[in-house]
Design a protein around this nucleic acid. Sequence first.
DNA 1: AATGAATGAGTCTTCATTCAT
DNA 2: TATGAATGAAGACTCATTCAT
Lengths: 210, 210, 210, 210
Amino acid sequence: MAKMSTKDSIIDAAISLFNIKGYSGTSVRDIAKKARVNPANISYYFDGKQGLLEKCFIHFFEAYLAFFEEEVQSLKFDRPENCLKRAIYKILYFQSTNHLLARFVWREVSIDSQIVREITSSYFMKERYLIKKLIEEINAGKVFSNSDIHFLIIQLRSLLTMPFLNGQYLREVWNVSPHERYFVEKYYQHLDRWIEESLVSRNSRLNIPV
Amino acid sequence: MAKMSTKDSIIDAAISLFNIKGYSGTSVRDIAKKARVNPANISYYFDGKQGLLEKCFIHFFEAYLAFFEEEVQSLKFDRPENCLKRAIYKILYFQSTNHLLARFVWREVSIDSQIVREITSSYFMKERYLIKKLIEEINAGKVFSNSDIHFLIIQLRSLLTMPFLNGQYLREVWNVSPHERYFVEKYYQHLDRWIEESLVSRNSRLNIPV
Amino acid sequence: MAKMSTKDSIIDAAISLFNIKGYSGTSVRDIAKKARVNPANISYYFDGKQGLLEKCFIHFFEAYLAFFEEEVQSLKFDRPENCLKRAIYKILYFQSTNHLLARFVWREVSIDSQIVREITSSYFMKERYLIKKLIEEINAGKVFSNSDIHFLIIQLRSLLTMPFLNGQYLREVWNVSPHERYFVEKYYQHLDRWIEESLVSRNSRLNIPV
Amino acid sequence: MAKMSTKDSIIDAAISLFNIKGYSGTSVRDIAKKARVNPANISYYFDGKQGLLEKCFIHFFEAYLAFFEEEVQSLKFDRPENCLKRAIYKILYFQSTNHLLARFVWREVSIDSQIVREITSSYFMKERYLIKKLIEEINAGKVFSNSDIHFLIIQLRSLLTMPFLNGQYLREVWNVSPHERYFVEKYYQHLDRWIEESLVSRNSRLNIPV
DNA sequence: AATGAATGAGTCTTCATTCAT
DNA sequence: TATGAATGAAGACTCATTCAT
């Protein structure tokens, strides 16, 4: 097995530990020990513990938003519900393969600290814009009020993040852990149906009467 | 204004700070300073920082589960969908008036530390049991598969907690903060409709053909 | 069983704990808990932790020196070697029945702190004077040089204290603990012989040739 | 004067302070201040205050037992009483040059704490074995009973440690402090004689009647 | 006589980081 | 690129004691 670079092994160890003990609860010494490197390297490569946090956040959100963006681009070529579904599937899959990072990020994001807000605010703005775009495209017939759409955004978002935040709970209810391959398939089926029933069919039912 | 007892002012300060900076990120000195008491009192009254955490958790979950329990009792006297709706309304209201505590608890719960698991495991078991009871009662006609029910549980739970975890996001999408009185009313309306559409009507539509 | 007075139960608990954990290693809270009284009582009755220490020291040394003093008085009526032997026996017995206190005092005395020195210096002066008196009386014939006498004093003293200081060691070598009744008898026999051989017989052998 | 290493200056300061104020009575801050180093170094180098204690104990007992061991080896080449005498002389000398350490160790050893017992138990077992070996070799003629030998062991041990435990007392009786060069010579003479009279001559007197 | 609340100073340890190498 | 030594600040907690009751 190829030896990981110092930098990468630090990131790996950090994600794992941030997850288990939270950001503040993790010390650079812990990270360094787990990564089998000298603690000084963390300051050296990431300009301190906070730099490491930012690296993780940026890595996660760049990928996360890219999936939405791709599918907003696809709106030109495909039906909007398909685009939304593909985005959802990709994001579930991405989070499943990076479930430690996902959980850590979604949790830490709920802290109202200034650092976090500085990093995330622009990502969130973009996220809202993209989700709205996708949903509104489906809702071209104007069935939904603005308030409805906002509720749908919130609902969609909570469905996308919740399994990763409360992995343990999910496992106990469903006997599937969010990092298992099978989880994505199973969970996606429900989301697919949810989109059909909450967005598409309701639209078509009411909108295209003849 | 009546001076709060030392004990209460510590709890208040703790909830507020745990919220802003997370449990690990908050120091007992911070708490003591905000509560304007001597740091030693925290060990004196709560047997250390961790004891304070447990106090918060227990207080929250006891109340949270009481609402579900009440309405499971009410199943004898009222239609199940009404019971579920009342439970949801009460819980939203409780969380709204204790939004700092709610956010902090739901976040910290996502950390897989042993302490947290020890405190929460029995609560979560009870929670699952109660929610399932309520949903299954509505689903007496057996329209839903087990997998469906489990998905509904997850969905319901995420809808109940999400606004408090991501208050900032919510505010930006909806212009309402989860601690405002108005939020509960507005958000509840959507949940009410969600129950009707996802649980009740689907049931009745298919179940009572005439 | 009669309930002990608050004061006495504090002293009892203190001796026991000072013994196990040393004076500095014992907290007033520990003492209070063991004595089942309120910590404030220790300041109330003994004027603080140090007062408790002094009480213990004084109690021990007053008794300890009384035995020597008695037998120095007896020199008028009995042969000096008998007086010394009786003193030794009484002191062994006293220490055996108060072995916790004895051990604690002899240990703490070896700390060069000012407090200890203030309390003990006058006692030690008196002790030296009394032991010397007893030995010199036996040595009336001037067999021993001054240096010899001083060595004998040191030797005697170490024989008197050592079993209580190193109780554990003694138990392992001899299978007797210093607080057992049997120990006093056994150990005294050796000391008796030691006096005979080191002091008395040597004296008589050389001194009374005719 | 060459600057001592951080590690060594910590040990030096620790021995000195443990001596004056006892182990529990000494704070790491005191040690650090006296050693003119940062308090954190104590945890860094010795894994905490207790680690420092263990270091001191181990250092002392390893040396202490080495002297006995050497002379048990010498039994093959020299008369046993000479071996015992050399061991005693070396140990006196070692303790005299490390009188602070010696006093501290012998005192702290009398505390029945678990830590102390864990460290010392194996040393004490070895010590007993070696002393017994030396004395029994002298007593080849079987003059002494087992009980006698055990008493001699206790007596010898108390003679070896007592001057260092009660240095102040010694000084007042003898006008010599245990760390002065002269003390070793003077005290050794008495011990030499004690061996002759208590072990050797008694043996020969009774044993080789003609 | 006895106590529970409260305190400020002090406990040991760990923190993230720096710096010479 | 990588490290071991070293540090000042901060961590949670315990201390002996006081005081109103």
